[in-house]
Amino acid sequence: MTTDGVAYERRSAAPVVAPTRPRKLAKVPFVELAEGRLQGVVSSGSDIERVYVSSVTAGEHGLSCNTNNNRPCGGLSGGSWACKHIQALVAEAELQYGTERVARYLKAEVADGGSVMSALRTTSAPNRAAEVFSSFLRHLAYLELPASTDPLPELQWFPAAGAVR
């Protein structure tokens, strides 16, 4: 018997997604890297009923920010300068996924020790609020699903995350 590791390609339990790092959710309750975008939801500072739905496209770095009632964000107003919501979204994504993973997904060249925000070229992008908001609602809907006690044998392939080291 050897103590040599087994090649990643030949491991059934090979880790694919790095564990999510814990962060406070009050300001930015939802962040995801999906559909070729960094996208998420930012709580309004002034109105508890309102959230901003913000996104940055991978590659082009196209920005979009609207309220959940589909009004354009005044800070962004169709331009290519990131509003405070997009800045918060990018910063929280870095906390959650780590700078490297966000930069790779967005295809941003981040200098050593730099932030993703400073590496974005930024342009304006079409409004994606409806898709992103429904993705957030799907996300929240998980918390409403009933618990399960039936056997789930496939979870042997999904060990609980180790500490972020």
Partner: peptide
């Protein structure tokens, strides 16, 4: 074996799961 499972989201992890 006896198991209990709950749906969650990615930001709920570690002991708070």
């Amino acid at each position: 074996r006896t198991s209990v499972a709950a749906a969650k989201v990615d930001t709920i992890t570690g002991p708070s799961a």
